[in-house]
Design a protein around this nucleic acid. Structure first.
Lengths: 194, 194
DNA sequence: GAAATGACTTGTCATAAGACAAGTGAGAGA
DNA sequence: TCTCTCACTTGTCTTATGACAAGTCATTTC
């Protein structure tokens, strides 16, 4: 786990000038964290903390105007997991984040993370890079939602995160692609015949 | 302009412990910036800087798979303007940001902003808050795209940013709402009769 | 001031996607 | 083993939205 965390930090910021001791200090400030399949990292109405996901997958969902569940994200390791609005504004979340598989990682609430940034200012740069990275990933996804057709969005998910199809239900994948499960089923049928 | 900037900083981070001198130092590090209507803040293929928009409105657009222009954002003051991916990764942007009206604000490229953060570490907190705020705003917009119907998205824009209807073309508003200009026209007709 | 241009609306038709119900098939549990 | 449940697929019909072309209106331009 420590090795994965170290690797994650180094890959996130190539020239990040941090020692192994520095890494250990940060890890010791955080909480080792595990969840079983079906457990929640975040529930609607609660305040989000942050975790570095090192093993396992999450699904994130909310509810639309009709009260129907809408899957807004799938997260695989290594990744920063948090609800940006709830975390930074310390207000109740509108999101639910549920474990699709067994989860391992490191956890910190806002106070913990803030304390780390005060005590180890160097790590602010890591925090900023993480925030920017998540923003960029989220924006990419939104652009695909806007610019690609339903079938293209399906093809993209198949190419970039095929493992999702092994661990998530198709109806959740459908709502993630912003289509109905009926439509996804038909896209898959037609896709196979090409 | 300086007063607006000061106000913007203070409203962005309520308890930000910065003096008027501190503010002046930052302003002096940035470049006073103006654009006329129709001029570009950012063109596809160029690397994005950042600006604090204090007067005027921008429209942001890209192109979808069919080569059709898609409006992805409208920005009004006060606001941080930048393409997050292009700015932080210093890579060519996929976006175009064009002035809908005369623009005033303060500009800095990545080097300038980075220098400010090194010389005045206190301002890192401001940078982080801005980044988080933009991320949250962008996420809100995406959630509306996912969770609301076309008509609801139109109603929301009318309620929250009616000024956009004065300064932007309906076909651009339509693509911002992710519908065709034909559909927007019909929504507006039907909406009036309610 | 006539013609051209551009923004927007509207009519007509085509099409993709949704709603809903029925059907299939695998796995869980008695 | 039987049946129950649940995920998924499929059929049928409906509906929202898009494509495209024509029409209106205001503004610009020569």
């Amino acid at each position: 786990m420590k090795a994965s965390f170290s690797q994650f930090v180094k890959s996130a910021i190539p020239n990040f000038p941090v020692s192994d001791e520095g890494l250990n200090t940060i890890i010791d400030s955080l909480e080792e964290f595990e969840l079983e399949k079906g457990e929640y990292f975040l529930k609607q109405g609660k305040i989000s903390g942050s975790m570095i996901l090192l093993e396992g997958h999450f699904r994130c969902y909310t509810f639309n105007e009709n009260g129907d569940e809408v899957t807004t994200a799938f997260y695989g390791p290594p990744r920063l997991i948090f609800d940006v609005a709830s975390f930074f504004q310390q207000k109740p979340s509108l999101e639910n984040i549920i474990a699709l598989t067994k989860i391992k990682g490191y956890y910190g609430n806002y106070q913990t993370v803030d304390k780390i940034f005060h005590e180890y200012p160097l790590w602010r740069e890591f925090g900023r890079a993480m925030l920017a990275k998540e923003y960029i990933l989220f924006k990419d996804r939104t652009m695909r939602l806007i610019n690609l057709s339903a079938e293209e969005r399906y093809a993209h998910l198949m190419q970039t995160e095929p493992e999702i199809f092994q661990i998530a239900q198709l109806r959740h994948i459908a709502s993630y692609l912003n289509i109905t499960d009926t439509s996804l089923s038909r896209i898959r049928r037609d896709f196979g015949s090409k």
